[in-house]
Design a protein around this nucleic acid. Structure first.
Lengths: 365, 365
DNA sequence: GTAATTAAGTTAATCGTTTTACCAACTCTT
DNA sequence: AAGAGTTGGTAAAACGATTAACTTAATTAC
């Protein structure tokens, strides 16, 4: 480290680009030592404790000294070293947001919701994308736990997150968002009401005469998918219709995936008259493919998508969507995390209800 | 702090949910002391230095001790405290990404690019959105500078970022992305070639006979906008056409903003036959408004948008877009930051070229 | 006028690592 | 067999803040 060269404990004022820059130690070569609280204290002729008290308002200090210290702090543009502060205080005012991927605008909006609320409450946000890699997820959470963040909002990769028990037992605040593990009920979570989402969308199609409804999901074996399928089943049951496994198809949350899913679903079950599609990109791919197959929407195939992407209204035909409020989910998740941080016993499951936005693509307008 | 109660320096093994949890100190009530390196060392009958060397591979340790220590580490699921590590090493392996807002899929994609590269190189990412608040931006960068991150990727709010001089003089690694300040050339940056973007899009319209071309931008006085306007002007000059200020209109990067911009532009300059629109949401709003006005695209008004959003192809009519590669820009920016961290003298300006994706909306197919 | 209280500052311990400098015990050289 | 090198390990000093406990002086109480 270049600054280990026998430093003179003195602060130089050097001129640099029209402004004064204050540097500690030798100024020849690449020597840029950061100013510390000790330097401030020395210059103000007080102890470091006093400086700390002035900065944090933890003790009353006479106005004279207060002003003197503040002036020096300003002059040096001094900011307390976060690492030292974190170490001593055992807290970082930073939260971790661990998502498994950014498949669609839904997750993106949710991230912005979390970020917004964090900013409002003075927290920093460490964003991590595990890319659906469960080992990386566990590794990451371990790392974050080691004094990097005060708590974590996690949208887990898999439905099975047994490893979280360890952190719960250690009392490390974790809040689940969007996805969860039904076997771990005593962990707070904020999600959309996915059962209702599946139910409402399906009911809407059933009410308008559809009987063979395809269901294109993005990822298997996560609660968002499973709950929506359960809602879908419940609606079918309500109409005394049988549930057929072969009406389900996976689309991997991409445009191409959506197109391929439509292709295989329609070759397998050619009598399908409606589709419920779980992410915006898949919906776009599906519409593309349907047009390619010279079928018309909604005459030949009706469509309900999930998540109201901006272009829904100007697509031909405008797309009916069922939506959950990702931004609110994100904000709420952060608030829940704060509650959990402040009260280790806090456990609450929040489910936000869906809304149906009817447009032409479902033929029901 | 509840753990201040006269702790017994001993580690208990308690049973909890089928697994063993190891806790230091008293186990009654809410006492969860984290295991430290000292505990590991004590149990292994070695010094903390040895444990540290084993963990970091900084010195050769006999296999016997090595294994013993590793076993204990595993048993306790021990991870070194990051705050202490950061403090001692004066580095955090964390980068800050400061953006001014998330107006469109472009910025979002760029963020994912940065995140992806950070993950690949073992860095953590602190994401901050300044919400176009320049004071918050400066405050944030100050905070991050204080030992929270090793460097920053910044997409600044304003064109004028004089305050950065201070950090440059202090040798704190900052890389600009997307936007920059032309008055500060000696700071590395990664952007799209916005001049070329404006030039190419305009040229394409001019080539196909358009002479009165409206330009809807999102934010005034940032380089992305200014450079594209310059490209637009250059193309007009090439065709010996005059530049008219009144063909420019601001749209604030929202759907409604785009719609309003079209409205006011067309009332002011009713003879406009083509529009070049700078963000996806504005494009969507513009198309909505144009349909509302019973004009047809591209017959009455041709459109070129910026940024290829997924639904471009299935909108009616499919939208011609000029694109820059946000994902690559993000990735590249992170690589540049790494270079800057490793070599304080590194300065490079990287500009990535645009691509035109021709579809029906510009009438040129 | 003495004791008790308050106020303003300071001292020094502490947070949990990393890393330099040192030591003791071997192994080679010659 | 003495000196030089090497190897495996440790003690202790950082890193830069916060904060409990203490001091000293000034004020108030009785």
């Amino acid at each position: 480290m270049f600054w280990k060269i026998n430093c003179i404990e003195k602060i130089y004022t050097i001129k640099c680009r029209k402004r004064l820059i204050l540097v500690k130690g030798l100024t020849q070569g690449v020597v840029f030592l950061k100013i510390t609280m000790k330097d401030i204290a020395k210059e103000a002729n007080v102890s470091v404790a006093t400086v700390s008290h002035v900065i944090n308002g933890t003790k009353h200090i006479t106005e004279e000294k207060h002003n003197k210290i503040m002036k020096i702090i300003k002059k040096y543009n001094y900011i307390p070293n976060s690492a030292a502060k974190n170490l001593r205080q055992q807290t970082t005012k930073t939260a971790g947001l661990v998502v498994s991927s950014f498949p669609d605008t839904f997750v993106t909006e949710m991230v912005y919701g979390v970020e917004e609320r964090a900013r409002e409450t003075g927290y920093n946000l460490l964003l991590i994308n595990t890319n659906e890699d469960i080992e990386y997820e566990e590794k990451t959470i371990n790392l974050l736990h080691s004094q990097m963040v005060d708590g974590i909002i996690l949208s887990p990769t898999a439905k099975n997150i047994e490893y979280l028990h360890e952190f719960m037992d250690k009392n490390f605040p974790i809040v689940l968002v969007n996805r969860y593990d039904p076997n771990i009920p005593n962990i707070p979570r904020v999600t959309g009401d996915n059962f209702q989402t599946g139910y409402d969308a399906t009911m809407h199609l059933l009410k308008h005469g559809h009987k063979k409804i395809g269901f294109i999901y993005s990822v298997p074996d996560v609660t968002t998918t499973l709950d929506r399928i359960n809602g879908y089943k419940a609606a079918l049951t309500k109409y005394n219709l049988p549930f057929k496994e072969s009406y389900l198809e996976v689309g991997y949350a991409t445009v191409n995936g959506g197109a391929n899913a439509v292709q295989s679903l329609l070759t397998r079950e050619s009598d399908v008259t409606a589709l419920f599609i779980q992410t915006d990109l898949m919906t776009i791919g599906a519409i593309q493919k349907i047009k390619e197959l010279s079928l018309t929407i909604p005459k030949d195939i009706a469509i309900i998508g999930f998540g109201d992407f901006a272009s829904s209204e100007i697509i031909d035909p405008p797309v009916t969507n069922i939506v959950l409020p990702p931004h609110v989910i994100g904000r709420t998740a952060f608030d829940v995390l704060l509650s959990k941080i402040n009260n280790p016993d806090y456990v609450k499951h929040i489910e936000l209800p869906p809304t149906l936005l009817t447009r032409k693509s479902c033929g029901c307008i």
